[in-house]
């Protein structure tokens, strides 16, 4: 039985972590590799690194950053932000990413998803979907109510989030990174209606993103059908570690992975906890 993944996200610009980080035991909190290693130590199940560099130099630095992360961490690493072509993907995978996330480039040329899946395998291909609520969201036809936007939410695409995610699955995407643009940075929790609407249409894993401010939000996302939950604010801006959050989730009946093996699992024996979680056999 798969264990829900807790995924801290690192926004990196010009080779440095963008958001403020307050871990006291980090000598250099702006160093992405040091932060990544700290997250792994705390029990992160996977990391996402989003390159938000605006310049060619910044994007070249991102490749170096991926290599530096890979040397340090022994958990999966997804890299997104500047991946616009097969060549970009090959570069990031060669540097040490395990998966690449494509967003705008996939919307502009959906065949990119198929080409990436054909060349690297579906398990390497994440499609990042940024979705914005439209006025009819949550009404009788909720599946028609989320628009796919690109370029940090500034440009509409004419695509619907549920239809686009189904198309991505058909094209060979191995995973959907689903971000609510309305909730991103707001801290009021994931857009659960959006999650459910996309969940109904695809059998590939979904990573929920945008809006999580504390562990209950992660729990809500998992219950609404996410296979993994991504968060930046919780771990960056608060004095809560991944281990703290996993302990809370375990106490609420969710299965979690212990960082170092079976001993010392926050939920006790890993056999004991999953039955109470949302990932039970009934789905």
């Amino acid at each position: 039985m798969l264990i829900p993944r807790i995924i801290p996200c690192l926004d990196v610009r010009d080779g440095r972590v963008v958001k403020g980080v307050r871990f006291q035991n980090l000598r250099d909190a702006g160093d992405p590799a040091a932060l990544a290693a700290e997250y792994e130590r705390q029990g992160a199940d996977e990391l996402v690194m989003l390159d938000v560099s605006a310049t060619a130099d910044g994007r070249r630095a991102a490749v170096e950053t991926v290599s530096a992360l890979r040397r340090r961490i022994s958990i999966p690493l997804t890299v997104g932000g500047g991946v616009r072509s097969e060549a970009d993907a090959a570069c990031m995978l060669g540097a040490g990413a395990d998966k690449v996330a494509v967003n705008t480039a996939a919307v502009e040329d959906p065949s990119l998803v198929a080409r990436l899946a054909g060349r690297f395998g579906s398990q390497c291909v994440v499609v990042a979907i940024d979705a914005a609520r439209t006025p009819d969201a949550g009404e009788a036809e909720p599946s028609m109510s989320w628009a796919v936007v690109v370029r940090a939410g500034t440009r509409a695409t004419g695509l619907r989030a549920d239809a686009w995610s189904r198309e991505c699955q058909r094209l060979g995407a191995g995973e959907i990174l689903l971000t609510s643009i309305d909730r991103d940075g707001v801290g009021s929790g994931y857009d659960l209606d959006l999650l459910r609407a996309v969940r109904r249409g695809v059998r590939i894993p979904i990573i929920a993103s945008g809006g999580a401010a504390h562990w209950e939000h992660l729990a809500e996302g998992l219950t609404a059908g996410a296979d993994a939950v991504l968060a930046a604010t919780i771990f960056h801006d608060r004095i809560r570690t991944v281990a703290d959050v996993k302990r809370d989730l375990a106490s609420a009946g969710f299965a979690v992975r212990a960082a170092g093996g079976l001993e010392g699992s926050p939920g006790g024996s890993p056999d004991a906890s999953p039955a109470a979680g949302p990932r039970g056999g009934a789905r």
Partner: peptide, 10 residues
């Protein structure tokens, strides 16, 4: 079941 199986398993 979810395919690909993507994640941690006992």
């Amino acid at each position: 079941v979810r395919v690909p199986q993507m994640g941690w398993n006992l």
